[in-house]
Design a protein around this nucleic acid. Sequence first.
DNA 1: GTCCGGGTGA
DNA 2: TCACCCGGAC
Length: 246
Amino acid sequence: MADVRLLLPEPEAGWAAWLGEVFRRLSDAFGPRHWWPSALAPAPAKAGPLEMIAGAILVQNVAWTNAEKAVRALAEAGLLDVAALHAAPVEKIEVLIRPAAYFRQKARRLKELAAHVTARHGGELAAMLRQPLADLRAELLALKGIGPETADCILCYAAGLPVMAMDAYTRRIFSRVGLFDPGVRYGEMQAFFHAHLPEDPDLRGEFHALIDALGNRLCRKREPRCAECPLRDLCGRVGVDADAGS
DNA sequence: GTCCGGGTGA
DNA sequence: TCACCCGGAC
């Protein structure tokens, strides 16, 4: 994998310290995000890995509020279970997950996932998730409906592996900051974060969740709210939109 | 009522 | 490059 081309000069204290500062600021502003487990039931009820994985597929291209409705509907129908999901008619799943958009595609993808786990792992999701990182990632990517971001979310939040998922927010935020070229590839961004962050699944998972919060609430595609941004003084692009012409 | 945002696969 | 789709923002 080619090294990413960085636009910002490396700070004197190094990239690890710079990322640590970014994390601390986001954490102070938005944390803790407590993404998974516990998306559904109140603690101490434990969310199963299928809830997390289904959520990761259902949240593609939609706000979490949409995905959450779909996950809750699946839970209430007793379908957050590999065998039940495998046995359920696709039409039934379509109706339940409608709020998550792309419901026809996603219903088929959920069933394909259940079929795969049934065929290859005896229906035991835990067995699939116990594999070494590279093997599990390749297996996930071979499934329809699981691309790099979804695979990495599953690796981190369901399998507990030290992987930081990238997404459109990561690309937007860090290209606005001036770190990456906007055309930076997924793997290039990820390699940069992985090279300079501790190999800690909790930290990497929380970082991704914090970036999601910033991208969602403040560093929006249009009309970013730079005045409220905790990274304001680290950013090369503060107020480019808001202050244009002033 | 219209538009916007957003991963994946073909 | 485009199809797949919804809820929320305006």
